[in-house]
């Protein structure tokens, strides 16, 4: 099977670099996050613990992001999603939970640069100060009228996830907001 991302490798190079992060395995897991069974499953598939409220934790195996009080986003290699889901479903048999492959329903952006906070601030109501949104914390909010989630992986790199159907729009938006000469210099 031949798979492409919603962005098909798009990139832009303005005040920040915006890049298609490529095929990413993403699994939505809903359930009781306090359940030790779910904690065990997460440990097995990504090597991480259940993240604290709004945190994104990662290992070399994968990453887990806290999305809501009963929802996690599990990120693994794109190729291993089906096997991971099978493993999770087997371990969670009889445990009230929901596991869905959302890899092809989302688009993932890789943002690089010193002014990511300024660029996102142009269209999002989220408080982008590093005090409120430190590295490793997930913020679900909107950019323009679209639901997005993003988190900083370091001071100058971030990941942004949106629905695949609006990937082109978000790409255009980010490209426009990071046009050279439009730097804000606030954050």
């Amino acid at each position: 099977m031949f798979s492409v991302t919603g962005l098909n490798g798009a990139s832009s190079n303005g005040s920040i670099k915006v890049k298609d992060a490529g095929l990413t395995g993403m699994i939505t897991l809903r359930g009781d996050l306090k359940s030790p069974v779910i904690a065990k499953v997460i440990k097995i598939v990504t090597g991480t613990n259940i993240p604290d409220q709004r945190q994104c934790v990662s290992t070399s195996k994968g990453a887990t992001a806290w999305m809501s009080p009963d929802e996690l986003l599990v990120m693994v290699d794109y190729e291993s999603v089906d096997a991971t889901i099978a493993k999770m479903e087997k371990s969670l048999l009889g445990v009230h939970s929901l596991i869905v492959n959302v890899s092809d329903a989302r688009a993932v952006f890789e943002l690089t640069g010193g002014s990511i906070r300024d660029v996102i601030s142009k269209g999002s109501p989220a408080d982008m100060s590093s005090k409120i949104l430190p590295v490793g914390e997930v913020r679900r909010t909107r950019i323009a009228q679209l639901a997005v989630a993003f988190w900083f992986t370091s001071d100058t790199t971030a990941r942004l996830v949106c629905f695949r159907s609006v990937a082109g729009y978000v790409m255009d938006w980010l490209e426009n907001a990071s046009e050279k000469g439009s730097e804000v210099g606030f954050h």
Partner: peptide, 9 residues
């Protein structure tokens, strides 16, 4: 989620 969110969120 203990986020202070804007009305538009």
């Amino acid at each position: 989620c203990e986020i202070t969110a804007d009305e538009t969120d």
